[in-house]
Design a protein around this nucleic acid. Structure first.
Lengths: 218, 218
DNA sequence: ACTTGTTCTTGAACACGTTCAAATTTGGGG
DNA sequence: CCCCAAATTTGAACGTGTTCAAGAACAAGT
C-alpha cells in the first residue's frame, strides 16, 4: 500500500501538533519531532518543507474544526448577534488548547512570506472556508441585515475575527475570559450598530466607509 | 573618557539599523553587524542582549522621529481630519526606509515576550510618546471633539495607527501609495463619524462601545 | 531472479543566534 | 611606575533550522 508514506507524514504532523500544544513552539525542535515520530531529522523535511509548514498544518486543522463547530452552532440561532457570538466562541473553543503557542503562531503567520499567513495563496482554502462561515452567519440572520451591507459584511467580520484572535493571544486572564467577555459585548453592539445604517446621517458616512474599504482592497 | 564604550554601542546600533534598511532583517546577521562595526560577534552581546534588542533600538528611534515630525505638522492645522492625516503621514514617512524590513519587524514586535512589543514595559516610554502625539492631535482640534470621547479617543486612534502600520507592512504598491490613500480616506471619515456622536440613536450605541472598550482594557 | 527507476531515509554538514570562560584593556590608588 | 579590580573583548562552543549527497527500500517490467 502507498499508505506507508502517508502514515509517516501523518505521524509527523500529529506529533508536531501535540508538542506545540504541550511544550510550545520553540521547545518543539525539528529533531525532537523526528525522534518522537521515529525518523531522522532530515527525513521530516521530505514531508514538510519547513517548521512553518507544520504550523500551517495546524492552521488548516483548526480552521476545519472551526467550520464544523460553527455550522452546528449556527443551525439553532437566528439573530445576528447570537450567530456572531456562536461563531466567535466556536473559534475560541478550537484554539483554546493552543493558547500558549498563540504568540509564536501569530508571529509566524504575520510574515507575508510564510505559508501560514492568512492572506497567502497556501492559506487560500482555509481562509475561504473561514470566510464562508461568516457568510452563512450573515446570510441566515433574521431579521436580515441591511442590503447594502450584505456583501461586504462577511469579510469585515472575518477581519474582526482576526482582531479577536490577536486580542486572545495577548489575553492572559484565566481561560482567556476577557476575550469571552469582549465577544459577548461586541457581538450585540455590532448587530445594533448595523441597524443604524438606516439613520440618514449615518447612512452617508457608512457608504463612504464601504467605498473606502472597497477601493483599498482592490 | 567613558565615551569609548558608548561609542562602540552607538556604532553597533548605527550599523545594525543601516543593514536592516539596506539588506533586511535576516541577511543582517549578528556576525555581519559585528564585523562591520569592527568588533567580535560575542562583543555585540555585551552591548545588546539579543538581536531583538537592536530592533528595539530602531523602534525607539523611529518613535522619537515620529513625535518630532508630528509636532511640527500639528502646529499648522486645526481640523481633526487634517491633524490626523498629518500625524499618520508623518509616521509613514519615518517608517518608509524600513518598509522591506517591516514584516520582520512586526513579527518580532508582536511577541508578548519581545522587548519590541509595543505593550511591553521596555516599550513604555516609546508608546507613551506615541500616545502623546495623538493626545495633542485630539486636544488641539478645532472644532473640538465631543466631550465624552475626548479621553478615550487618543488611545483608540493610536490603535488605528497600529492597524495602519499593519496595513502598510502588507502594502506592496509603489511607495505604499495604497496606505497613503487609506489614510487620506479614513481620516476625514473618522472626523465626520465622531460628529454623529450627537445623534441620539448613535450616542447610545457609542456609549456602550466606550464602556466595552474600557471594561476590556482594565 | 535480475535490472532499473523511483521513492524514501539517513547522517553529516552549514550558517545562524547565543553563551561563556578566558584573555586583554582600562582607569585609579599606592 | 606598578598593581589590581573592573570593564571590555575575544574565540570557541552549543543547539537550532535547514540542505544535500549518498545510500536503502521498494515497485515493476522482463
Amino acid at each position: 500500500m502507498a499508505a506507508k508514506s502517508e502514515q509517516t507524514r501523518q505521524k509527523l504532523a500529529e506529533v508536531a501538533l501535540r508538542m506545540f500544544r504541550e511544550i510550545g513552539f520553540e521547545k518543539t525542535t525539528m529533531r525532537a519531532i523526528a525522534a518522537e515520530a521515529g525518523v531522522s531529522a532530515g527525513n521530516a523535511y521530505y514531508y514538510f518543507e519547513s517548521k512553518d509548514s507544520l504550523v500551517h498544518e495546524l492552521y488548516v486543522q483548526v480552521q476545519a474544526e472551526h467550520a464544523e463547530r460553527a455550522a452546528g452552532a449556527l443551525a439553532t440561532t437566528g439573530g445576528l448577534a447570537e450567530r456572531l457570538k456562536a461563531v466567535l466562541h466556536a473559534g475560541l473553543d478550537v484554539m483554546a488548547p493552543y493558547h500558549r503557542f498563540g504568540a509564536d503562531f501569530v508571529a509566524t503567520a504575520i510574515r507575508p512570506t510564510s505559508p501560514v499567513n492568512p492572506f497567502s495563496t497556501a492559506s487560500n482554502p482555509a481562509r475561504e472556508a473561514s470566510l464562508e462561515i461568516f457568510r452563512q452567519a450573515v446570510d441566515g440572520a433574521r431579521p436580515a441585515v441591511p442590503k447594502k451591507l450584505r456583501s461586504d459584511l462577511p469579510e469585515l467580520l472575518w477581519l474582526c475575527y482576526m482582531g479577536v484572535t490577536l486580542f486572545w493571544v495577548y489575553d492572559t486572564s484565566d481561560g482567556q475570559q476577557r476575550t469571552r467577555r469582549l465577544v459577548d459585548g461586541a457581538a450585540p453592539l455590532i448587530a445594533r450598530g448595523l441597524g443604524l445604517a438606516r439613520v440618514p446621517g449615518v447612512g452617508k458616512v457608512l457608504d463612504d466607509v464601504l467605498n473606502l474599504s472597497r477601493s483599498v482592497r482592490s
